[in-house]
Amino acid sequence: MIVRRERPEDTDAIHAVTAAAFRGLPYSLPPAEPGGDPGEAMLVSWLRADPGWIPELSLVALEGDQVVGHVVATRAHLEGRPVLGLGPLSVLPGRQRTGVGSALVHTLLGAADALGEPLVALLGDPGYYGRFGFVPAQPLGIAAPDPAWGDNFQVRTLSRYDGQAGRFEYSEPFNRI
């Protein structure tokens, strides 16, 4: 397996991987149209078209020529200061729990740190994301867009983190879901 930046020819495969990864899950976003793909697949398309898109932080996992996973982080803000929002993270169902997601997250965090980003935030399972150093955001003084998210809203501080706190805001496409 190799992890690399997304290329234009990967767009359809990323959509298919994201749709397959979230199809039928109780926490997936509703389809944009009845019977359509889960909302996460549309979210990636919206993010790609948004000014908050950071090409260096849209990564695919490949086995041979097949895209088996994708992760993206886009521009977000913490009290008006630039930070990152991670998501969605998608892995083909048949490749889940085999290290693909871990490789994608580790690579993304390394790339974000190398780009000088201060922190990455996400909404997800603390039992999964804790292994990457994510911690609940609230004890750091970082407020989730929705307080009901509780400890599922997490942050991973990076080398340039300076203790900034306040209300977190994802890029605009997240407001459509």
Rank of each mutant, 00 (worst) to 15 (best):
L140P: 00
F174I: 02
D37F: 04
G150T: 10
R95F: 11
M1L: 07
A61N: 01
D12E: 15
A20E: 13
A112G: 05
G127K: 08
F168M: 09
A16L: 12
I142V: 13
P88Y: 04
V60T: 02
L29V: 01
L47M: 15
D146R: 11
A111W: 07
R4C: 05
P126Q: 08
I54Q: 11
D37Q: 14
V105F: 02
V105C: 06
Q154T: 04
N152W: 14
G24W: 08
R176A: 14
L104Y: 04
Q66W: 07
A121E: 04
R167G: 13
A73C: 09
Y129P: 03
G94H: 08
L59C: 07
A19M: 06
E33M: 09
W53N: 05
M42W: 09
F174M: 02
P26H: 11
S45N: 11
L119K: 04
S90L: 04
A20Q: 11
G39D: 04
G36H: 09
P38Q: 12
R5K: 10
E40A: 03
D113F: 03
A21D: 09
P51L: 10
E169D: 13
L25V: 09
R95E: 14
A144N: 06
P93E: 08
R48E: 11
A21Q: 04
W149I: 03
S159V: 09
P147R: 08
G133V: 07
T11E: 14
H70S: 11
T107P: 02
R75M: 12
R95C: 08
L59P: 04
D125M: 06
Q154A: 12
D113W: 00
G110E: 15
Y27P: 03
A103S: 13
E117C: 12
L62C: 15
S90N: 07
G24T: 09
L123F: 12
P173V: 10
Q164H: 13
S102G: 15
T74W: 01
L47S: 01
Q154I: 04
R81K: 15
G24L: 07
Y128Q: 00
G141N: 11
G163H: 11
L84A: 09
R176D: 08
L158A: 05
L140A: 07
V44Y: 01
G163W: 10
G101L: 00
R4W: 09
L29M: 12
L25T: 13
R176W: 13
V71G: 00
R75Q: 15
P139F: 03
L92Y: 00
V135C: 00
D50Y: 06
A143C: 13
R5Y: 02
H15G: 08
A112Y: 01
G64Q: 06
A13W: 06
S90I: 02
